[in-house]
Structures are given as structure tokens and as C-alpha cells.
Design a protein around this nucleic acid. Structure first.
Length: 420
RNA sequence: GUGGGUGUAGCUCAGCUGGUUAGAGCACCUGGUUGUGGCCCAGGAGGCCGUGGGUUCAAGUCCCAUCACUCACCCCA
């Protein structure tokens, strides 16, 4: 009976050292851009009360109805690993009265989320998103700032093949009117609709626009359009957003059927897709949610945000990353030298010089190999001969030059060398 | 939840219509240099051929089941 090793959970992944540097560069690019826009980071807990998501994302949404990791804890509380971040950040915004401290709050996050779906390319059960949530402004300038912030990060990452799709699903009134109109229009054809569309017809008619079926698409083409039901304010808002985007040279496509899956969206919705991915080609999605804060018990406060999937960004961003290289490798031959190099390595490290030495008591040959593999620039060799003369041999690995220096001048000597 | 594809060395894979000790490249280790890396050369280690069952004189190869991975549907980042 051989023991089966324990495996990671389906849809989760280990990020190993050969990949972690790509994550680090991605994260620092995100933070840098966020800071140039004066957005500040918010961190929320990994899990929340389940009701938070029921009341924001919507009970009929796929996320809530079939994808959440939910459990009852030992105290009887109903908890859920966060499947998205707008609701938790909004909850934190309300709970900490951020709106009372500042009329506008520009928040960003980089975080892990959890959804129990069947994994596939670009989709995992634990995945990472970065994004922003801005509370307090109803004006188009902020819609545009948020979009331009997202695009600016993608530009810095030199991503190619991206498309920005834009739509407005109008305010509350608009959507109510549209909802009755589209139901009216589709009612005679109800039997012809797909099963999912029939469900949506009852629960969330707006999302029928999302359909993939060609027949339904052509049927919808001649039906009522959301834009016909925009209030004049909705229309003005959307036009201003488009104009401002033009003004700062951000290209976009109008997608009248871009309805996002979550209940809380209003007015502006947008999505960025990549033609380099498979079926899961959305790398970023966002929009306005002017009613959400109030819905979750806060003072009426407009909001807008986006979230971008980091695993997908890394799939799109195939640029290779230079690996971090060591600088100094210290070799000690013999017992006394071996104990000496521990001190030398320590001193170099305290001076911010990347330093390694052999931990397997291997031969000098293997140690040289190891130094080479680590990308060290110089090797310091201390053996019997050197010890006797109180010197160290320093070898430049790129041109094989070797020189000998006094033992007590190692640090100053190394500091004078080009270590890059 | 549904469908397709794939499971052979640490990694990428070969193994033809079933046939004898299961291979390659890369990586790893040792040696070629009494204390010197990369390149080269020589050698070495490393495989319940995913797992269980079946057909057969004979199974990595065929059949069934099962598990895992993967892609896709649904939906989303």
C-alpha cells in the first residue's frame, strides 16, 4: 500500500520560483501606476458573511448560485470565501465611514478570489485580480479616469491584441422600462428561446442580451435596444464618457449588448478582451454601480470600478523576465576556511551584496559550477594556500581573470567592483 | 454539472499493425584538472509505462472501469 501524496486542490496552483518573479514585476507595475493616479490600497479579509454577496452580486447570478465556497463555521455563522471584490470593498467603505472622511475615495487592491468552477485555460478556483473602486463621484471624468488607469497598466505591460468594449446599461429607471419592453417583445417567442434565456427571462431579462445563440441574436437585433430607454441624463453621461475617451486617445468599441453578469451595475459598463487567449478572453471588466452603497446600508454614494484577472494578464504577457542573478559566490576549502566564509558571506550580505556559498560541502568543481549557475559575477576562493598567506583569490567569472587580495580587504575590494 | 483530448525518467516527448533487458533530448551526479565554472568528451543514477480489472502464449501497445491533468460548453477575471 503505497501512500498517495497529498495534492493541491483542483484549480489552485503553486507559483514556483521560476514564475514568482513575473508576478512580482506585474504587481510592482500595478502599484506604480496606481500611485501615479493617487489611488490607495485597501485590503479586506479573505472571507465575509455570505449575505454580503447575496445582497450585492445577486442570488440569481452564477457566482452566487453555484460558484461560492460557503460554509457554516463552528459558531454557526454562514461564511464565504470572497468570489469578487466590489462587495467587500464597498462593505469596508461603509463600515469604516470612508465617505465621511473624504468626499471621494480612490481605492485599489491586489487580491486572491475563489470561485468553484471547472478550471480551464485562464480560469482557476483560486485566482488573482487587481482592480479599483472609486466612491463619491457620479461624473464622467471618473469613468474615464478609471478606464484610462486600466489601459495605462496594460500599456505599460506592453500587452497586444486588446479591445476595449464600452456600453451603458442606463440608470435604474431606464433598466426597469427596458426590462418590461424586452419581455413584451420576447414573450411571443418564449418557446423558441434557449433554456438559459428562458430562465433569464424570468429572473434577469437584461442578461438575455448576453446570449451566444445566433438565432436569438438576430431576434434581438430587431427588438428594443437599451439605448432607446436611456434617460436624457444617461445619454449625456455616456456621450461625455465617449468624448473624453476620444480626447485622451483611448480607442474603444461600442457594444450595445455588453451587460455584465452582476446585479449591481448601472450606466457605464466596459470590458477589455484579448485575442491571444482561448475562450476565457476577458482580462478586465468593470462599470458603474451607483446604487450599491445604499443597497448595502450606506448613504447613497455613486461608485465605479474594474477588476482585471492577473493569471490572464500573465498568459497574455509572454515577455520573458530576466532572472535575478547572484553577485558573489564564496568558496572555502578545508574546515577552517569553510567556517571563515560564513563570516565573509554575512558581511557581504549585510552590505546588500547578493552572496551564496556551498551548503553541501561539495568539491571545488561543483562549487564553481554552482556559482556559474547562480549567475555570480565573482567567486572568492579561500583555501589552505590563501589562509597561510592571509589572502583571498577573487575570480571574475565573465573573463576568468584572477587576482589575490588581503583577507581583511575583501569587503572594500568587492564594493569597488562592478557587480551588475 | 456536460462533452472532447491526454497520462511512459525531474521536464519535453518517442515507442510502427501486441513480441524478448522500455528509449532520446534537456536537467542531475561523477570523472577527464593535487584547488577552478561555462563549451566539449566519457561514464552514472533515475521508470509499479496514472491505478484496478479483462482479452492473450505474450500488454507501454487492445478492451472496460477509475482517478488525475487539460481544453471546451455554461459563466466569468
Amino acid at each position: 500500500m503505497s501512500k498517495e501524496p497529498i495534492r493541491s486542490i483542483k484549480g489552485t496552483q503553486d507559483i514556483l520560483p521560476d514564475q514568482s518573479s513575473r508576478w512580482q514585476t506585474l504587481e510592482s507595475t500595478i502599484r506604480n501606476t496606481m500611485h501615479t493616479y493617487d489611488y490607495f490600497e485597501i485590503r479586506t479579509p479573505a472571507f465575509e458573511n455570505t449575505s454580503l454577496f447575496l445582497h450585492s452580486v445577486g442570488e440569481e447570478s452564477d457566482i452566487v448560485s453555484k460558484e461560492m465556497y460557503t460554509w457554516i463555521d463552528q459558531g454557526g455563522e454562514n461564511l464565504t470565501l470572497k468570489p469578487e471584490l466590489t462587495a467587500p470593498v464597498t462593505r469596508a467603505f461603509i463600515q469604516n465611514n470612508l465617505g465621511g472622511l473624504n468626499p471621494i475615495n480612490k481605492l485599489y487592491y491586489i487580491d486572491s478570489l475563489f470561485r468553484r468552477e471547472r478550471p480551464q485555460k485562464g480560469r482557476y478556483r483560486q485566482f488573482h485580480q487587481f482592480g479599483v473602486e472609486v466612491f463619491g463621484s457620479e461624473f464622467p471624468e471618473i469613468d474615464v479616469e478609471v478606464i484610462s488607469l486600466a489601459m495605462s497598466i496594460f500599456n505599460t505591460l506592453e500587452l497586444e491584441g486588446l479591445t476595449l468594449e464600452l456600453n451603458s446599461i442606463g440608470s435604474e429607471d431606464c433598466r426597469n422600462n427596458f426590462r418590461t419592453a424586452i419581455k413584451e417583445y420576447l414573450k411571443p417567442n418564449f418557446d423558441k428561446l434557449s433554456e438559459t434565456s428562458q430562465k433569464r427571462f424570468k429572473r434577469n431579462p437584461l442578461r438575455i442580451l448576453d446570449t451566444k445563440s445566433l438565432e436569438e441574436k438576430t431576434l434581438l437585433k430587431d427588438g428594443p435596444q437599451i439605448s432607446d430607454y436611456w434617460t436624457s441624463d444617461d445619454k449625456d453621461h455616456f456621450n461625455e464618457v465617449c468624448e473624453l475617451l476620444d480626447k485622451i486617445n483611448i480607442k474603444f468599441e461600442l457594444s450595445p449588448n455588453l451587460v455584465r453578469g452582476l446585479d449591481y451595475y448601472t450606466r457605464t459598463t466596459f470590458e477589455v478582451t484579448s485575442n491571444l487567449l482561448g475562450a476565457q478572453n476577458a482580462i478586465c471588466g468593470g462599470g458603474r454601480y451607483d446604487g450599491l452603497v445604499e443597497q448595502l446600508g450606506g448613504k447613497p454614494t455613486p461608485g465605479i470600478g474594474f477588476a482585471a484577472g492577473m493569471e490572464r494578464l500573465l498568459l497574455v504577457n509572454q515577455k520573458s523576465d530576466e532572472t535575478i542573478k547572484s553577485q558573489i559566490y564564496v568558496i572555502g576549502l578545508g574546515d577552517s576556511a569553510r567556517s571563515l566564509i560564513i563570516n565573509i558571506a554575512l558581511e557581504l550580505r549585510q552590505n546588500n551584496i547578493r552572496t551564496s556559498f556551498d551548503l553541501l560541502r561539495r568539491s571545488i568543481k561543483s562549487q564553481m559550477r554552482d556559482a556559474n549557475k547562480l549567475g555570480a559575477k565573482y567567486v572568492i576562493i579561500i583555501g589552505e594556500e590563501e589562509l597561510a598567506k592571509n589572502i583571498a583569490t577573487i575570480k571574475n567569472l565573465s573573463n576568468s581573470d584572477q587576482e589575490q587580495i588581503p583577507l581583511d580587504s575583501i569587503l572594500s575590494h568587492i564594493k569597488s567592483l562592478p557587480l551588475k
